[in-house]
């Protein structure tokens, strides 16, 4: 396995009474596309937030580029985040700024570059996502797919070494979906960044991922290359990858006997 950019060891995290992760151990290799998959509610997005230092684990460690994220001071954390990019599921564009200013936002906040340089950098990123012509539009004038592409351009404006995608394929039409899939792959190759894609869209993820971790019930249930997982003899992995309604993960939420309930028994 190549050198790692993120190493998560013995990670435990709870929200209130609910334990999200009991003991997660995983490695994200440098320069590759790594997918984090799993059923809804398994904490995939939470894992990204833990990597980005927006949440602090109860136990265990998250090491990014050799630095333990939970141990960093606020200032050091912000320095580390300049080397990370994150595409949010909603896009999270700043609604009072137009497309151009949204993408220029991180540059204006961190550097004192001349306006011509900012203009060139923004247009270069907009060209990658195919929206150079839309630079004047406000976020309210964009479709869901366009907003996500703008958010992607903003996330890569500082050329991050680690790019995190939170459900990048959800709710997109087939054309936009195809575009996003190929952009993720191309960005990884062209800019040499390491990518983490959180998703449960099996076919899209397996088409671009070099390595996959599947989370379930607070632990990493399976890991491997897409080929390895496709050939896995675990019933659980097969059920998840093939989208079978019933199997080791039951279709029904735990409940009392159906026939008894209809006859007036307890629900």
């Amino acid at each position: 396995m190549p050198e790692s950019i993120v190493t998560i060891s013995d990670l435990q995290f709870s929200r209130g009474e609910r334990e999200i992760f009991s003991a997660v151990n995983l490695v994200i290799p440098k320069g590759k596309v790594t997918a984090i998959m799993g059923p809804s509610g398994t904490g995939k997005t939470t894992l990204l937030r833990l990597i980005g230092g927006q949440l602090v684990p109860d136990r265990g460690d998250v090491v990014v580029e050799g630095k333990s994220i939970p141990a960093l001071s606020n200032k050091e954390l912000y320095i580390s985040r300049k080397r990370m990019g994150m595409l949010f599921q909603s896009g999270a564009l700043l609604t009072d700024l137009n497309v151009f200013e949204n993408i220029a936002f991180p540059i204006r906040e961190h550097y004192d570059f001349p306006e011509t340089m900012i203009r060139d950098l923004v247009f270069m990123k907009l060209e990658i996502v195919g929206l150079r012509g839309a630079y004047k539009l406000m976020p309210s004038e964009l479709s869901g797919g366009m907003a996500r592409r703008v958010a992607l351009a903003r996330a890569i404006i500082l050329d991050p070494v680690l790019m995190m995608y939170d459900e990048p394929f959800t709710g997109l039409d087939p054309i936009t979906l195809g575009t996003i899939v190929s952009i993720i792959k191309e960005l990884n190759q062209a800019l040499g960044m390491s990518s983490v894609v959180v998703s449960h869209d099996v076919s899209e993820v397996l088409s671009i991922a070099d390595y996959v971790h599947i989370l379930s019930e607070g632990v990493v249930a399976a890991s491997g290359t897409p080929e390895e997982l496709r050939e896995s003899d675990s019933e659980w992995v097969r059920q998840f990858l093939q989208g079978l309604p019933d199997g080791p993960v039951p279709f029904h939420y735990p409940a009392s006997d159906y026939h008894q309930a209809l006859k007036g028994g307890s629900l």
Binding site: G52, M84, G85, A92, L94, F105, P106, L158
Partner: peptide, 9 residues
């Protein structure tokens, strides 16, 4: 949250 990830407080 997106600002935090862009290293902007």
């Amino acid at each position: 949250a997106s600002m935090e990830m862009m290293a902007v407080d």
